[in-house]
Design a protein around this nucleic acid. Structure first.
Lengths: 210, 210
DNA sequence: GCGAATTCTTATCCTTTGTTAACGATTTGT
DNA sequence: ACAAATCGTTAACAAAGGATAAGAATTCGC
């Protein structure tokens, strides 16, 4: 929990320009509410049962969201550099989170807190800009959720795996396969079968025809 | 596509108070951008392939969201009275929707358009309030999506059915079962089996032991 | 670099679900 | 009220996925 460096602030400010452009004065105020968290692999950004008080933006590293059901971890999502991180419902409603958020690699996260945000909403020098910022980030999140839900509803796990294969994100190259299996809603064994089907589809046919 | 009645406006205004409270002056401006759509059963609020230009609020009736895959309809969600309705990603990004939104019953929907909203964001008399309104509605939607995704990730279709059974919403009483099966991610046949298991769990055992 | 832990694959067996079709009940339109 | 369409259940069979275990490959910690 440290103050951000100038470089980190610059980088974050640049990244936020897809949502809003802050004036110097606005940015100085906003920046006063930012802090940086350093997470070692397997450390937690948020924990199930506790209220998530922060929204973070991943400067470095990657994290996973998971639920625990019957003592088993179920990974629901991943985030990488330049993406926001939070247990959003917990943050927004200030109720205990049902999921945990854990670093998969060592991470640097630039964060603001719920109470900080509340101050900003009350500060007439920035509140209009912050409202807009909040709205646009929330809208972007809705688009992400919309895609996720559509994917769950309309696609089989195998199709969703193919989607990952052909996408530009780095889920498949940076993440242990059993987490990906969870994410797809299947067991690691089943994912392994899917991979074999895709990589060597001729084997099954040969046995039948030859 | 008609102007709302005074009663409809009053009702809608009251419903929005969970998000923001409008002054008379603000409300008069906002209300000028509202219109009412009447949908007969099976008519469309939004269609796949077209940009969804509106956000609606269901005054009466119920609707379903569905995707078409390989010529087959897959129902992903339902909405009832006093809930917002839109193909949100399509609306927010003004890109063609991947889903259709169809009335399951005759519906009355009070709506505002994307261009109307843009005007409101540009009107200094209301823009601050509308930004806030937009943010809070978006945040509420995020919470809904968060629950839906968590449900998909952590629960089996049978558990999700039980959830519907014990919830206070009226999905199970007002919706054809094959839509519910879709919604749960299973076939109507499979849902029928789940229902039998729940209603008459002793039958299977009797056959084995008796 | 070496032992331990983790990760991935493969095989076998078994449960669950999908597919298809038939039938009865209910609903709908006229 | 009656014919047609829709809807829910059940059965039989096929296909797919989960559970478990064993072994190979890779990674990690010291």
């Amino acid at each position: 929990m440290k103050y951000p460096t100038e470089l980190q602030l610059l980088f974050f400010r640049k990244a936020l320009e897809q949502f809003v452009v802050f004036t110097e004065r606005e940015w100085d105020i906003f920046a006063g509410y930012l802090h940086v968290k350093t997470l070692k692999k397997k450390e937690y950004f948020a924990e199930a049962g506790k209220v998530c008080n922060e929204v973070g933006f991943l400067l470095r590293g990657s994290i996973r969201y998971y639920h625990v059901k019957d003592g088993v971890e179920i990974t629901g999502y991943f985030s990488f550099e330049n993406e926001f991180v939070s247990a959003y419902k917990s943050f927004l409603t200030q109720t205990p989170s049902t999921a945990s958020i854990q670093a998969m690699e060592n991470c640097q996260v630039i964060c603001f807190t719920h109470s900080g945000l509340r101050d900003l909403f009350d500060n007439p020098l920035v509140n209009y800009k912050i409202e807009r910022f909040g709205r646009l980030v929330a809208e972007a999140l809705i688009c992400c959720y919309d895609d996720r839900v559509a994917s769950f509803v309309t696609k089989t796990p195998e199709e969703r795996y193919m989607e990952l294969l052909h996408s530009n994100n780095n889920i498949l190259t940076r993440i242990p396969q059993h987490y990906v299996a969870n994410y797809l809603g299947i067991t690691p064994v089943s994912l392994s079968r899917i991979r074999r089907r895709i990589l060597k589809p001729q084997h099954g046919l040969r046995q039948v025809t030859g």
